[in-house]
Design a binder for these strands. Structure first.
Lengths: 324, 324
DNA sequence: TTGTATGCGTTATCAT
DNA sequence: ATGATAACGCATACAA
C-alpha cells in the first residue's frame, strides 16, 4: 500500500475501492495516523487558516460575540483561526501580521482593527490574499458594515420627537471610523433646518465605562443640563447612567440616555438601557462566510459590500422631556 | 548565491560574512521575500503556534483579558495563537482540535476549557505536546490556578464577622471545576463548628446575568430572606443586585452581595460591587510563559503548578447586617 | 483502481 | 564562509 494510496483514500474516499478505503480507515484508526499539516500546506499552498486582526480598543462584550460568530463559521468549514492584536501600527506586531500574510501561514484575514497593518513598507494588501473588513470601510477589502449612521440619526430624531432640545453626545476617539460615521450622522440631523435643537460633545472620548463616568461629572457641573444623552457605546452610556443616578439625577425623568451596541449588560441596567443593537454574532458569521467564499473562489472577482441592520431599542433609559 | 546561503543569512546572521549578510538583506528588502512557513515547519517540525482552547461558558469580560495576556506573551515570543472553541465534547469540533495536536500545526496548547478534548478515542494528551491548564486542575498538564477557595472562604468569614447568619450562594454549573472548588470552600466554612450560620444554594446555576436575575426573583419571594449573598461570578452578582434593588431591597442595607472575578463592570455598579478580583491579565501571561518554556525545553521534565493570588475587595455592596 | 515518481521550499549535513 | 545536496511528508501527474 503506497503513500499515494493512503493520501487518496483519505482525501477523496470516493475515488478508491470500498475495500481499500475500509482497509485504510482501519489502519489509520489503529495507528492513530494524522496527516502532517505542514507537508500538505507546502504541497497545495493552502493552510485552511484565517487570520483575525483585533484591537484592544474594542469592548470585550462586543468583540467576544463577533469572535464567536467567526469561530462558528470557520470551524464549520474546517478552518483554523489565528488571532492577532495590533494596538499601534508600524511596530513589531504589525510586522508579524504582515509576514503571516506573505509566508503562506494564512489564506486570508478578517480585520476588526479598522485598518490594514503595514510594516517595512509592505502592507497586508500586497500579499494578494482576500481581506474582509468588519465595521469599517477599507478600500480594497470586502466590507461588512452596519447602518450605524442611519440608526443613530433615527435615535436622535426619536428623542427630538419626545421633546428634547438640548443634547449631549459622548464621542469615541476621533480617529475611529465608527465615531466618525456616527457623529457625522448626528451632526446632520441637528444641522437640518427643521429644528432648533443643539448638541454638544463631551470631552472624554473613548469607548470605556470610565469615559462615561467622566462625562457624567462634567454633565453634573453644567448649569443648563442637557436632557438627552447619546453615547457612542453602551459602556459610555452605562458609566454615565450610573454616575448621574448616584448624584440624584433621575433617568429618564431628568435625562434620557441612549447607548450603542446592545451588549448584554445594557439589558440589566436600571433602568434598562435604550440602545442601538448591533448584530454582533451575525457580523462575525457574515465576515467569515465572505472570507471563505473569497478564498475558495480564487482571484478577487469583485469586492463585496454588505450592510447589516442594527435595531434601535428604546427602553427604560429614554422618555419624553419633563418640564420641571 | 544558493538557497542555503540565504537561509543561513536570515536565520543565523552572525554565521555569515557581514558582506554577504548585507547583500542578502538588500535582496530580501528589494524583492519582498518572505520565507515559506509551511516548508520551514516541515523541516524543523515546529510551527511556533500555540492553540488556545476556550468554552462559550466563560464570561466575555473575564475571558477577553486573559486572552490579551496570552496574546502579549505569545506575540512577544514570535508565536501565533490559534483559537478554538469547544462547547460540547466528542463532536466534530473536538476532533478538529485533537487533530491539530497530532498534525503538527501547533506546538502546544493552553486550555481555558477546563478539560482535555477527546475524539475518536484519542485525547489531546496523546499527541505528546505540552499542555497548560488555566483556572482548572487537570492531571498531566502544567496548571495555573488561583486561590479561589481561600478567598471565597475569607469573604464568607468576613461577612460572618459583619454579623450575617443567613447566607445565599449563587452557584455555577455543578460540573464546573471552579464552582466545585468555591462551593467546597464555602461549605467548609459553614460546617466548621464555630458558627450557627447557614447557607442555602440558589437553583439557577450558570455564570450569566440572567441566572442572577432568576435567583433574585426566588430571593424576593422568600419569607426569611438571607442577608448575605455570595455569587460564583460578577455577572450573577450584578444581575441579582440590579433586580433586588429594583424591587426596593437596599444594598447593602438589606442584603450584602459579594461577586467573583473583578470584571470592569463591577467597578461601575451602584453600589460598587464587592468582589474577588482575579488576576486575569496575569493568568494569561503566566499561562503563555509556562507553555513557551515547556515547548522550548523539549521533553516534559516536570509539571509545574502555580497558584496566583486573588484579591478580596469589600466595597459598596457589602456591609454589616442591619437589625430592622 | 492502484502504484511510482517528482516537486513543493526549507534546513541541516557535508564537502569545498 | 559558502555551495551542493538530501530529506521533511504530502499530493498529483503519469504509468501500469
Amino acid at each position: 500500500m503506497s503513500t499515494a494510496t493512503v493520501s487518496r483514500a483519505l482525501a477523496s474516499p470516493d475515488q478508491v475501492s470500498p475495500e481499500l478505503r475500509a482497509r485504510v480507515q482501519a489502519a489509520v484508526a489503529k495507528l492513530g495516523y494524522t496527516p502532517n499539516a505542514a507537508a500538505r500546506q507546502l504541497r497545495i499552498k493552502r493552510s485552511r487558516t484565517a487570520l483575525v486582526v483585533t484591537r484592544r480598543r474594542w469592548s470585550a462584550p462586543f468583540f467576544a460575540e463577533v469572535l464567536r460568530g467567526l469561530d462558528e463559521e470557520f470551524s464549520a468549514a474546517g478552518y483554523a483561526m489565528v488571532l492577532g492584536n495590533v494596538d499601534e501600527d508600524g511596530g513589531e506586531r504589525s510586522r508579524q501580521l504582515v509576514d503571516m500574510m506573505f509566508s503562506g501561514t494564512i489564506d486570508g484575514a478578517v480585520l476588526l482593527s479598522g485598518r490594514v497593518a503595514a510594516a517595512d513598507g509592505r502592507t497586508m494588501f500586497e500579499a494578494g490574499l482576500p481581506l474582509v473588513s468588519l465595521c469599517a470601510a477599507i478600500e480594497g477589502t470586502h466590507t461588512i458594515l452596519t447602518d450605524e449612521g442611519e440608526c443613530i440619526a433615527r435615535g436622535a430624531r426619536e428623542l427630538l420627537r419626545l421633546g428634547h432640545r438640548n443634547f449631549l453626545y459622548l464621542p469615541g476617539p476621533s480617529d475611529n471610523y465608527n465615531e466618525q460615521v456616527r457623529w457625522a450622522a448626528l451632526a446632520e440631523v441637528f444641522a437640518s433646518a427643521s429644528t432648533d435643537a443643539t448638541v454638544s460633545r463631551a470631552e472624554q472620548c473613548d469607548f470605556s465605562l470610565a469615559a462615561g463616568v467622566a462625562a457624567a461629572r462634567d454633565f453634573l457641573s453644567m448649569k443648563q443640563r442637557p436632557t438627552a444623552v447619546i453615547a457612542v457605546s453602551d459602556e459610555n452610556a452605562i458609566g454615565f447612567l450610573q454616575t448621574v443616578q448616584e448624584a440624584g439625577v433621575g433617568v429618564p425623568h431628568d435625562v434620557s440616555v441612549l447607548g450603542f451596541d446592545g451588549i448584554e449588560f445594557a439589558d440589566f441596567c436600571r433602568p434598562t438601557l435604550s440602545t442601538i443593537r448591533q448584530p454582533r454574532l451575525e457580523l462575525g458569521r457574515a465576515g467569515a462566510r465572505i472570507l471563505l467564499k473569497a478564498i475558495e473562489s480564487g482571484p478577487p472577482l469583485s469586492l463585496s459590500r454588505e450592510i447589516l441592520p442594527n435595531e434601535l431599542q428604546f427602553r427604560g433609559s429614554t422618555g419624553p422631556v419633563c418640564e420641571t
